[in-house]
Structure formats: C-alpha cells, structure tokens
Computed example of a mutant assay.
Amino acid sequence: MNRLQTLFASGKKDLLSIYYTAGYPSLGSTLDIAEALEKAGADFLEIGFPYSDPVADGPTIQHSLQTALDNGMDLHVLFGQLADLRKRVSIPIILMGYVNPVIQYGVAQFCKKAAEVGVDGLIIPDLPMYEYETLYKKDLADNNLSNIILVTPQTSDERIRKIDELSDCFIYLLSSASITGNSLKMSDGLDTYFKRIEDMRLKNPTIVGFGIADRTSYQKACQYNRGAIVGSAFVKFLGENEDYLNKIGEFIGRFK
C-alpha cells in the first residue's frame, strides 16, 4: 500500500487534509509549507500544480494559481522541489491539478516522476472517468498512485458505484457542484446528501471538500465522512499573512 492507502486502512477518523498551490505565495515556499502543515497536525496534503484556466476554482485559488505561474512554477520546477520531499515530510501527499499540463508533460512520465519523489495519489478533476479507465489507469497502477475521483450531489448512484469500483483509497465528496471557495451551507439538503452516500455502503471511505472553512463545517463533514479537505480558506490565509509559516499551527487549530 502507498502512504495514503495505509492512512485510510488504519481506520483513523476526523482526518484533515489541506490544499495549497505549489509556488504560492512564493516560488520556493512549497516544501516549507508542507513541513509546517505536518508539524501542525494535518493528516495528508494536496499540493496543487498551476494551470492558466482553472474552471473549477473560485477567485481565491484562481489568484494563487496565476501568482504561482507568474512566480515561474510549472511541473518541471515542482518535481525539482519535491526531490527533497521525503527528507522533510512523512504524511501522504496528493498532487492536484488539471489534465492539460499532465498530458503536455506526458502522462506516463508524470506518473513515474510523481512516484519517484514520493507522491501517493492524484486528483485530476477534469480527467474523464472513461479516459482514466481505458488510457491511464495502468500508468497510475504501475507507479502505485491512487486516483481520487470526485462526486457531487448530482452524481447518479450508478456513476458513484462505478467510481467506487475504480477507487482504491477514498472518494472526494464535493459538498456542492459549485466552484471552490463557497461556504458550506448547513441545510437539510446537505444532511440528505451525506446520508444518501453513507447508506450506499461504499467500499471506499469519503472525504468532503469545498466550503470547509471553520470548525463547524469541518465537524459537519466528519459527522458522516472520514474527514474533510480545507482549500480556499488556507490559500486565503497564506495570502493574508506574511508570517504564515509561524501561524500555520494557529490555522490548524481552527479545525482540530
């Protein structure tokens, strides 16, 4: 098992994952942030690689992605930085981004390089499930990388079953079909959605993302799921605090 699979196989609950953009706020901040997040208590991390047309992201993450590109971040630079990843960070790491840069880099080469630096999984939201299954599944499997697939409240039961069949770690449950950065709404509809997924008794656990910004929304997500992902709130924190490395522990304390 990779580190991600090992974490979920442990049965640990109330997992907290943090997303941030590689190369933001500064080009060289990627590993420093990862190390500080692990020390502060994050259970696993999602490191975003920038792309010029991030259609699923809201203004906060869009800004971080453009800033990272302006700073000179690309996949070649990122893999160079991650060469020292496992000397400094032991928790599971996921790379998250759009499919276009991966295809330009070369999917097989991307997977090989990700494995070499110690990455455990990938989240590519705009990679069609059919293309993954027919074209790229072997590339990930050969490099012991988990593919994390997204589910929204509008996803059919049939598709969710298929996603569960293709997954080997966890399923990324979006709190809504909206873009990143919107607050999680505490509503009967959200309870119904979470309960619907719970009642399906999937073989893979679920983690909730989009709108997790405080302890209340984090605990709401954990009530039905194994944990939650904080993205826009942390990226916003990085942009607002020059001394962010020394305040990351305080940020994690907002959630657990």
Rank of each mutant, 00 (worst) to 15 (best):
Y172Q: 03
N204G: 07
Y132I: 08
A177L: 09
T180N: 04
Y132P: 11
D120S: 14
P153N: 05
K137D: 06
A36Y: 04
L85G: 10
F110K: 06
L82G: 05
I47W: 06
L202R: 02
M129Q: 13
S90W: 06
T155F: 08
E250V: 13
Y218L: 15
S167G: 12
D199N: 15
P153G: 09
M186F: 14
L190I: 08
L7F: 06
L69N: 00
N241L: 01
Q109H: 12
D53N: 15
A34F: 05
L78E: 07
L173N: 13
Y105D: 04
R226G: 07
F8M: 05
R226F: 13
Q104G: 11
F44G: 07
Y136L: 00
I248Q: 11
L135K: 13
L245K: 11
K137N: 00
D84T: 14
S187N: 10
V117E: 10
D191A: 08
K39T: 12
L45V: 02
L166V: 05
A34T: 12
R88I: 11
I61P: 11
E131W: 09
K87E: 15
C222Y: 04
Y130W: 13
Q223C: 10
T6I: 13
D157G: 14
L31K: 03
D139R: 09
A108V: 03
T180D: 03
V89F: 06
L37G: 00
D157N: 15
D57K: 00
N100Q: 12
G48K: 01
K12M: 05
K113Y: 02
Q5I: 09
K138P: 03
V151G: 07
A233E: 14
P125W: 00
L190C: 02
M73I: 03
K112R: 13
L150H: 06
D139V: 02
R86L: 10
K220S: 08
A221Q: 04
I33T: 11
I163T: 01
L37F: 09
L82I: 02
K39W: 10
